[in-house]
Design a protein around this nucleic acid. Structure first.
Lengths: 231, 231
DNA sequence: ACCTGAACACCGTTCAAGT
DNA sequence: ACCTGAACACCGTTCAAGT
């Protein structure tokens, strides 16, 4: 009944938290949020379902750990820039790409509340916000606004992907369907949605996302001392 | 085995989509996201689980409908202001309060992708953004940025509540626990998180949320013609 | 047309029992 | 200390059968 040929059998390594997290990410990438199951995970790791609980508290803990591994990897890969603003754009863009490539990350991140994966992002952003010469009390608010915006976009992106997948549509078909729906709304009640429906199918997700980041950055009051450049 | 005394038996009305949605909201409010179950719903409505499927496509449809009812109600209650900016603040504040009072709304809204509940919010915001004299192509980006920010905050708020409830903590205990965790991070790796940890327990969620809205609004380039006031 | 409720194919989690 | 895997208490969804 069991097929073993399809997956490589690495028997050398014993079960460990790291191997479990790695296998979880592979499952999530291949089959989405619903693909991560203790049973599927156990089969992939050639072990019993209960064994996983020795290394991991529960499913929520497992998802948080998977997020953390992903975020750590991505922030290490790309979190610099010539100026603080450029660095923030770079961090945000990297998170956008990560969520775009791993849709489960978008919805899982939001559920991580004040835990490590989110602290890492906040820290990376916050350090750059500090470098922007933002007043002490405002640093928290600016960094939070950026983080909240990133999570909001990510969550919606993830929802789009899942919604499309459930209906066997690709991204373009989905956006077209959405544009059609919006353009059929009552003109008196939905003038804005209708007027903007046309932009839905042609717009560039990533560019629009970064425009939003710039909007927030532009809203910051630069203190007068921020003018001089740091070599 | 079954207790009927606790819930009022209204037999007059037959099953309808509206009654199902109303009962769903009551369940979600009382027991959170996990509280909405076709079995619990069936018992509450004194019917069979399968009967619900005659009026509702599936659970995702049901959640979207519950969101839509909630959003419609709240936007009707409060979506005006003396100026476009004030109206946007009012809409955003109303959504914040709605999510704060009904935490399930925060996480459910994000999964509604381009569907009606979100279109309603976008429309309400978009109409005000237009009134701000924002250039045509930028209207979409500004409205989207605001919406994304609202959803991001809402999703996290919902996660906070659920996280706290799962550990039998109230909001204050939870924030204190988070502040403690953050202040114990490595000072070299997490200077920013540590420095803002103190603000966590004293900050005003709603005020910080609205500050973020203002930040985005301030980032908008007002066109020169926007200066004159409309009486 | 609308409702019933047993049945199906799953879940996450636990826990006695093994090594 | 670590692993096994059956068992428990749930899910969403379907569908023959009823009215």
């Amino acid at each position: 009944m069991k097929r073993k040929a399809s997956s490589p059998q690495r028997r050398e390594e014993s079960l460990s938290r790291e191997r479990i997290i790695e296998a979880s990410i592979e499952l999530l990438d291949r089959s989405g949020e619903d693909g991560l199951t203790f049973r599927a995970l156990a089969e992939r790791l050639a072990t019993g379902a209960g064994a996983i609980y020795w290394h991991v508290a529960n499913k929520s803990d497992l998802l948080t750990a998977a997020c953390d591994a992903m975020v750590t990897r991505r922030l290490k890969a790309n979190a610099t820039g010539a100026t603080p603003s450029a660095a923030i754009r770079s961090i945000a863009g990297e998170m956008f790409d990560a969520i775009d490539e791993h849709p489960w990350l978008g919805s899982a991140l939001i559920h991580c509340a004040g835990q490590m994966p989110m602290v890492r992002i906040l820290e990376a952003i916050g350090q750059q916000v500090r470098a922007l010469d933002v007043a002490g009390e405002a640093q928290w608010q600016v960094a939070c606004a950026l983080l909240n915006y990133i999570l909001g976009v990510g969550g919606q992106n993830a929802a789009h992907t899942q919604f499309a997948k459930a209906r066997d549509l690709d991204r373009t078909d989905f956006l077209n369907a959405m544009a059609t729906m919006w353009s059929e709304l009552d003109p008196d009640d939905y003038p804005f949605a209708r007027s903007v429906a046309g932009q839905l199918s042609t717009h560039d997700d990533r560019a629009d996302f970064l425009t939003g980041i710039d909007l927030i950055l532009k809203g910051i009051d630069p203190s007068p001392t921020a003018v001089h450049s740091i070599p």
